[in-house]
Write a protein that binds this DNA or RNA. Structure first.
Length: 240
DNA sequence: ACGCTAAATCCGACCTTAGG
DNA sequence: CCTAAGGTCGGATTTAGCGT
């Protein structure tokens, strides 16, 4: 996905690629939101904690680890409101010390790595101040005029997409669980049938069936894919 | 005007640990 | 045993604030 600008002339990985891509994405999504607004069907702002839950469920899609999500949670906690409205910049400006506090004492270097991961995944945008510090400039009446820190707008503007992935992830989890329970039921019932067949002395090739069952009754891997599970499921149904 | 220090950040090199 | 992720440390940059 990031081949085009994957490396810089300086040899390192390019942070700016994710930055530019995120900014384009934000501009594009904002245009669509405003268009919808002017057509009279405005999109509601996203509930930030609900959105975070959904992102947690869909985190595999985005390659985000649990701790990266925890850092995002800390960032969200610095936003005053419960909703994220992508129509405006959503800038939070906590120091690393404060972020560390809200991530239960995460080490600074680790914190930075996870922040970089969030930027990379285009969930947030860096709004750097001239000196790299994060702060807000306020006018005399205390209103924030400009702020330097992290912009949460990309996350807000991807709410629908994230919800979609979360729904899919939930469906997949249910499907996997269903397959697993059916597999165990099949295994148990087939074993019972064979056992009964042998002990009651019924005619049948019980030995052969027993061997086939052994081949299918190994432990199902904890991280088996849906394909693997449904294949096993099909074979068991046939045997039965 | 100048220089020093503090704060905040990024980066790279290196070590440690958990899990497959 | 190897790998990936996390953690530590030191070097670097930038600006604000302060004293001379």
């Amino acid at each position: 996905m990031t081949e085009r600008f994957a490396t810089t002339p300086f040899g390192g990985r390019s942070l700016s690629h994710a930055m530019f891509a995120a900014q384009e994405r934000v501009a594009d999504a904002r245009r669509k939101l405003l268009a919808a607004d002017s057509e009279g069907n405005p999109t509601p702002a996203a509930d930030k904690w609900r959105l975070l839950r959904s992102l947690t469920e869909a985190r595999a899609v985005y390659g985000l680890s649990d701790r990266t999500i925890a850092v995002l949670e800390a960032l969200l906690s610095f936003h005053q409101r419960a909703e994220l409205d992508g129509r405006e910049p959503l800038i939070v400006f906590p120091s690393n010390a404060e972020l560390s506090m809200r991530t239960r004492g995460m080490a600074p270097a680790t914190l930075r790595r996870h922040l970089a991961a969030l930027v990379d995944a285009q969930m947030i945008i860096r709004r750097d101040s001239p000196n790299g510090k994060r702060y807000a400039r306020r006018s005399c009446d205390g209103e924030i005029k400009s702020a330097f820190g992290f912009d949460l707008a990309p996350l807000a503007l991807r709410a629908d997409e994230i919800e979609g992935h979360a729904t899919a992830a939930r469906a997949l989890a249910r499907a996997l669980q269903g397959l697993r329970t059916e597999i165990t039921i099949h295994l148990r019932d087939i074993a019972k049938t064979i056992g009964a067949g042998i002990s009651e002395g019924r005619a049948g090739r019980w030995e052969e069936l027993s061997v086939r069952l052994d081949g299918l009754s190994g432990r199902v891997a904890r991280n088996a894919t849906k394909d693997e599970l449904s294949k096993r499921h099909q074979e068991l149904s046939r045997l039965r």
